[in-house]
Simulated scan of single mutants.
Amino acid sequence: MKLTVNTPEGTRDRLFAECMGRRQVQERLIRLFRQRGYREVSTPETEFYDLFARSGSAIPQEQMVQVFDQSGKLCVMRPDSTTPIARVAATKLRALPLPQRLYYDQTVYRAGPAHSGGNRELPQCGVELIGAAGMKADLEMVATAVDALRVCGASRFHVELGHAGFFRDVAARMELEEGEMERMRALIEGKNFAALRDMFAPFRENPASAALLRLSRLFGGPEVLDEAEALAGETEAVEYLRALYGELSAAGYGALVRFDLGMVHQIDYYTGVVFRGYVEGAGDAVLSGGRYDSLVGVFGREAQATGFAVDVDAMARTLPEAAPSALDTVVHYAPGYLAKALEAVDSRPAGTCELSPCRTLESSCSLAREKGAKTVLVFDVTGERVVKV
C-alpha cells in the first residue's frame, strides 16, 4: 500500500516566513484587544451540531465539517467562534456583570465544494462585546475594527458599513415569498445587476423595486446615504448610519470608513450595523462583523451583542514577507559546557545563533558552512574562542 504524503483537501502546511507572518498578525491583534479591555476565551474545536442548528447559525449546514462522537451524536468542527462564545457568555459567565469584552484566537473549519481549492482551516482573531447596545457599543466596535487593520501594518485599507435594518425595511414593501426573498438577497450580495433587473421587471410599479434594484450599487462615501434616502425615503437605519459616521469622523476615523448598503449577507443573523474590512492586496474582505442581538438569548441569557473576526492568513498575505533572521553563529561545546553554550545562544537575537549537535569541532565547522554561518563559537577546556569558517 502506497503511503499518502500529501494533506487532505482544503488543508496545507505552513512554513517559516508564512508562520512568522501569521504570528505577527496574531500578536499585534491580541495586544490591541487586551489594551482595549478584552479577555481571552477559548472554545472546543468540536461542538454538537444542535448548537448551531438551534442558534440559526450564519454558517450554512453544507459548509460545516461534520464528525461523530463516540456515542454517535452528530458534531461539527467549529465553523465559527461567535456562537460558541455566545453559549459561554450565557452559561459559564452568567454570574458576571455585563458588558463582557471577550476575544479569541482560534481556527474555524469550513467545508467547501469538492476540488474547489478553498481553504478549510481559517485562523481567526476576533472580539465579542456581549451585553452592550446602542451607538457607543457600535462606535467602539467599528473603531476597534479600523484599528485592528491599522496595527497589523496595512497601509491602504478601509471598513465598509451597512445596516441589516435597511434591507429588511425596503424588502418588506415587496411582499415576496421567502424563497424569492432569499434569491433577491443573493443577487444583491453578488451584485448581479442583470438578474436583478429581470427579477424586478414585474414589480416596476412598486417604488421599493427601484430602491432594491439600486441597492447593489449603493456603495461609496457618505453621499450614498443621501441617495438611499432619495430612493427609499427616511429610514431609521440610514439615520443611524449617518449619526454613527458623524461620531467616527469626529474621532478621526471618517477617511477610513465607507458604506455598502448592498451588504445583505446572512441578514437573518445580523440585526443592526454590519461591516467588512478590506486591505489592498486581498481579493476579498479580511475582516467581517456586526450586531447580533438575538443570539445570546437563545442560550438563556438575554444580551445584545456585537463583534468581528479577522482572517489572520488573509491579513498576513497582504503584508511584506517577514524575512527570518540569518544564522550567523554555530556554538560547539564540549561535555560539561552546555550551560555556557545555552547562555551564548540565548543572549543573541533569535535565529542568529544555534547549538551544534556535532561531536567534533571539524563537524561543527562543516555544519556552519552548510548553513551559511560565518563563525563557530567554541566552549571547551581551553575556554571560549571563535573560529571563522
Rank of each mutant, 00 (worst) to 15 (best):
V286S: 05
A17G: 01
A133I: 04
A145F: 05
A53V: 14
P202S: 01
A285F: 13
L161K: 11
E182H: 13
E62Y: 12
Q61I: 14
T83V: 15
Y270M: 10
G162L: 12
L15W: 10
F157P: 02
G126M: 12
A323K: 11
H163D: 01
V286P: 00
G307A: 02
F52K: 05
R242L: 00
A164N: 04
T235C: 00
F48C: 09
N119C: 15
V142M: 09
V25D: 02
G307T: 02
V273M: 03
S216C: 13
K73H: 15
L287C: 08
G153V: 01
R369C: 08
A114C: 12
G221W: 08
A314E: 08
G297R: 06
S155V: 08
R197H: 13
D293A: 00
G281S: 02
V376T: 03
Y240T: 04
S249L: 04
A368S: 06
R94A: 15
G289Q: 06
G233C: 00
D328L: 08
Q70P: 14
P357M: 07
D284E: 13
G117S: 05
D311N: 13
P84L: 10
E27N: 12
A350Y: 10
A53D: 10
E302P: 09
A201W: 03
Y292A: 12
R28K: 10
G72C: 07
P84V: 10
E229F: 05
G289I: 08
D284G: 03
E223W: 02
L244W: 00
T382R: 15
Q24M: 08
L149H: 04
R204W: 07
D147A: 04
L212Y: 00
E9Q: 10
Y270E: 02
K191N: 09
A171Q: 11
L218T: 07
A114V: 14
Q26E: 14
R94I: 13
Q61S: 12
K340I: 05
T107S: 13
A172P: 08
L256R: 15
V88G: 14
A309Y: 04
